[in-house]
């Protein structure tokens, strides 16, 4: 057991996160807070999934919010319009997220850096426009109303406390899977590719395959998040999945440290607390994360999560000049 934690060091963070969720569950005493806490759990997972794309595949995606939306609408339509069971809808959302994310990721095979960012931004915007315009399916700009509560083998999760528990269990399982994934053989291959695509190809690794795999995996997770979100509020509208939210998520990932589990989870926590604290102007968190991203980009290339790595570099420089 301990060996497992040693080998997959991010599992410790996931364990800590799940303890936090248990404690939160014990202390919260009001349905409203459970709704907020559930959103926090969903956001944590969502941001971690984007972190995979940025930190492990070294790509940028400004369509992550749209993929989250794809999951939400898929689940809403399947359960409410077609009467599909929740678990099936959850899987379908993951699949839909997976497929759309492959489309979003496809340009990454050809485009780099900011060209890719623009392409994904375009795809994200198109998807949101489709949410607005295909109103016979999605309810258009007014949103999709009256989504059925999640139901598993006949048990309906109307109670938000119970739904919080369900969301937490699903989210922690997926997070644990991701934590193992990044330190598996595949994860190591990804790191090799990120540090040098050419060197990795010469080792027989196919960068395109691995990049798309991360996009797909991340999309599947985001799709699942969408499904969980749709059955929480039981109302969804296009503006939730806007490009601004996608940009915001990128900010959260980079501020948290682009390949740090702890950083992504912390960013999600700060985001939720801020939104809770300043209820009348929720966009304040958008401003603060924007500011954070700005400062990180300019003064701290590599994110707060990389702060530990900044110090050794400085020490080395001092040593070197002393030596000469």
């Amino acid at each position: 057991m301990l060996g497992l934690f040693k080998k997959y060091k991010n599992l410790k963070i996931v364990l800590f996160f799940s303890l936090l969720l248990v404690f939160a569950g014990l202390f919260l005493n009001n349905e409203y807070y459970f709704a907020t806490a559930s959103i926090f759990v969903i956001n944590s997972l969502l941001i971690t999934s984007l972190m995979m794309v940025i930190g492990y595949a070294g790509q940028i995606s400004l369509a992550h919010g749209a993929i989250y939306g794809i999951g939400a609408y898929t689940s809403a339509i399947l359960t409410t319009k077609l009467g599909a069971p929740f678990l099936l809808a959850l899987l379908a959302s993951a699949l839909a997220g997976f497929l759309v994310s492959l489309i979003v990721g496809a340009p990454s095979l050809k485009l780099r850096g900011h060209y890719l960012a623009m392409a994904t931004l375009g795809v994200g915007e198109i998807i949101v426009i489709l949410f607005q315009e295909l109103d016979f399916l999605t309810g258009g700009v007014n949103g999709f109303v009256g989504i059925k509560p999640a139901e598993i083998f006949g048990y309906s999760f109307v109670n938000l406390t119970e739904y919080y528990a369900l969301v937490s269990v699903i989210a922690v399982s997926i997070l644990a899977f991701l934590a193992i994934f990044v330190d598996s053989k595949i994860g190591r291959a990804l790191r090799a590719i990120k540090s040098s695509e050419i060197a990795a190809s010469s080792l027989g690794l196919n960068p395109s395959f691995y990049k798309l795999m991360v996009f797909g995996l991340s999309g599947a997770v985001a799709g699942s998040c969408g499904s969980l979100y749709a059955h929480l509020d039981r109302f969804i509208s296009p503006s939730t999945f806007s490009v601004s939210f996608s940009v915001m998520m990128v900010a959260m990932v980079i501020v948290g440290g682009e390949s740090s589990f702890a950083g992504s989870l912390a960013a999600a926590l700060i985001f939720s607390l801020l939104n809770e604290y300043v209820r009348q102007f929720q966009e304040l968190s958008q401003f603060l994360f924007g500011l954070g991203l700005f400062l990180v980009a300019i003064y701290m290339k590599g994110g707060i999560g990389n702060i530990g790595k900044i110090f050794p570099a400085k020490l080395e420089r001092v040593k070197r000049s002393e030596a000469s």
Partner: peptide
């Protein structure tokens, strides 16, 4: 260029909030 791009992405987030405010 990459950090400059990230800085402008950050700027767009902040400006949007200010416009709204």
């Amino acid at each position: 260029a990459l950090y400059l791009v990230v800085a402008t992405i950050a700027l767009s987030l902040m400006l949007k909030t200010l416009l709204l405010y």
